[in-house]
Design a protein around this nucleic acid. Structure first.
Lengths: 98, 98
DNA sequence: ACTCTTGATAATAAATATGTTATCACAGGC
DNA sequence: GCCTGTGATAACATATTTATTATCAAGAGT
């Protein structure tokens, strides 16, 4: 067997064009990176989800769902969470190739 | 009368702390700027909403709703629209003061 | 063992975004 | 006048996020 029946890693799955289109892969990687930065920002401030919920107005369960990528935030929600952490979102030109 | 009963401009409304909190004002201005850049990006490419819908996978009515700010996009939708235009979204540190 | 805080999660309701299809008014070109 | 392409929008269905409230297991510290 060439690997069809083996249990794939996440990486294997993501790089299989038959299952994940290049566009989807880029979007998923984008989301992973974005959420990662959001979590980093909060932890760098030494802030708990509960504290952030308090000052951002976004409820703690919602923050938990975002950070565990169970939901995809709307841009206003993302802004509300990032702003008290000293960050915002910007539209930037795509870096080619990578 | 000091202006209480006069019909305000949008700018007057946005700058009245009694009606729009500083946090809301920042978020609203952020959204306006963000959507503005999105529209610019599409128009710079000379692309119609219908063309963009085709290549992005986001339907034309949805794009029209976003551009006219009748809905607030989720980050995956925003990414899908921006990516074929050569843009992406990034988390960046807040510029202080402005 | 106990307490406290952490992130995660369940359950329900409410709000909102998106898909889908069709159509509209408007502007430009012919 | 007619045709074509544009963005906006209506109406409905579906999917998803967020709020709300409460709770949980795990870990840290006492």
């Amino acid at each position: 067997m060439k690997g069809k029946k083996t249990i794939d890693t996440f990486s294997d799955y993501m790089n299989d064009e038959a299952r994940v289109s290049p566009a989807d892969r880029e979007r998923i990687n984008f989301e992973i990176a974005l959420i990662g930065k959001m979590i980093e920002a909060r932890e760098q401030r030494g802030m708990s989800q509960r504290e952030l919920a308090e000052i951002s107005g976004v409820k703690q369960p919602a923050i938990a769902r975002l950070e565990s990528m169970r939901t995809t935030p709307q841009i206003d929600t993302l802004f509300k969470v990032l702003h008290p952490l000293g960050y915002t979102i910007e539209i930037v030109p795509l870096r080619q190739v990578e």
